[in-house]
């Protein structure tokens, strides 16, 4: 017995020092600076360098300046002069006290975002799948579905909406108001707005369709054939093949949609920021507008984090863990 235990101990001791030596050889170990890793770093920074330079000059500088402005009072007098505020976060407090419309505007925006996002994503996915199937005049259809997005950004759209082209005729005759009569205003308002701008939403989803289409190109047809042989119908292969493969694209599209809706020119909060910055220089002014936009950026960030958490791949952690196991062996 005793000797057997000793033997076991011996074996353990014999195995024990082996482990770290194996780990040292592992190129994925973060602490070791091997020649190869240094090379990889260099190449990484080499490829990134033009982007880094651009970002530092045009983005980081501007961000830092705007952050600096947001905690000062600005006077445009022979260039820009900065004066200290009573306390550094005064502008931020002011945004919450002066902007009385902000909570309702923000609430309406969030609700309409929650309503619009699934519509845009599912509509563009359906259209992309239709456009990806084998039909004649495919490229003509693709063009028709994508091109409105180009016009939608221009002044033509304001002309079109003014003429009532962009509304569904059925919706405007009051039947919807009757239907939604029982709901409180802050819910009913985004819904009526949603139906009023339904066509506008569809016109604006060209980029999303395009992104989905390029994602769909990756799905190999052999996979569908294999599923068909195993007895899956179209509905099943959509849920089991198309959707899982498209999941990262759906996340990408959702992020794009949120950003486009939140920072687009027609957004009401952007208009609030614009008018605060440029139209009311005496009560609010530039540094106030800066503080406002920082707050708004934080709000968008929170929305995006929620989207990320909802749509990120759940198996991600597991895959990483398995990968690590493979490299350790």
């Amino acid at each position: 017995m005793a000797t057997k235990k000793k033997q076991q101990n011996m074996q353990e001791i014999a195995i024990a020092p082996k482990k770290p030596s194996k780990r040292e050889k592992n190129p994925h170990d973060k602490k070791r600076l091997t020649k190869r890793r240094v090379r990889e770093w260099l190449y990484g920074y080499l490829f990134l360098s033009p982007w880094i330079i651009g970002v530092i000059i045009f983005f980081v500088c501007s961000m830092v300046t705007s952050l600096n402005y947001s905690v000062h009072k600005i006077i445009f007098d022979n260039g820009v002069q900065l004066q200290p505020l009573e306390f550094w976060y005064k502008n931020y407090v002011d945004v919450f006290t002066l902007e009385t419309d902000l909570p309702t505007t923000l609430g309406t925006f969030t609700i309409s975002l929650v309503l619009q996002l699934p519509i845009i994503i599912s509509f563009s996915l359906i259209i992309a799948m239709l456009l990806n199937s084998k039909i004649r005049c495919r490229s003509l259809f693709r063009m028709i579905f994508f091109l409105p997005v180009i016009i939608a950004t221009g002044p033509v759209m304001t002309m079109l909406t003014a003429q009532g082209v962009a509304t569904v005729p059925m919706m405007s005759d009051g039947s919807l108001t009757v239907l939604l009569g029982g709901l409180p205003a802050f819910i009913a308002e985004p819904i009526t707005e949603l139906f009023n701008s339904l066509i506008l939403i569809l016109w604006n989803s060209g980029i999303q369709i395009l992104i989905f289409l390029s994602g769909l190109q990756k799905v190999s047809t052999t996979m569908y054939e294999a599923a068909k042989i195993d007895g899956a119908n179209g509905w099943e292969s959509f849920w089991k093949i198309t959707l899982p493969i498209l999941k990262p694209i759906i996340l990408l599209n959702s992020v794009y949609t949120v950003v486009a809706l939140a920072t687009g020119g027609t957004n009401e909060i952007i208009e609030l920021i614009y008018s605060a910055t440029y139209l009311t220089p005496w009560t609010k002014g530039y540094s106030y507008g800066m503080a406002f936009s920082w707050i708004y950026t934080a709000i968008i960030a929170v929305i995006l984090i929620v989207v990320f958490l909802l749509l990120k791949e759940k198996s991600d952690k597991k895959v990483k863990y398995e990968k690590r196991l493979v490299t350790l062996r």
């Binding site: 880094i52 045009f58 983005f59 705007s66 995006l304």
Partner: peptide, 29 residues
């Protein structure tokens, strides 16, 4: 596809740039 330090921070900076309101950076730019 490459592994190097500060990679994630770079990506976060890009995401921040994605979200930031263009109206606010007009004068600094």
């Amino acid at each position: 596809k490459m592994r190097f330090r500060l990679k994630n921070i770079m990506m976060e900076i890009n995401n921040l740039a994605l979200m930031f309101v263009a109206t606010a950076v007009v004068i600094p730019r």
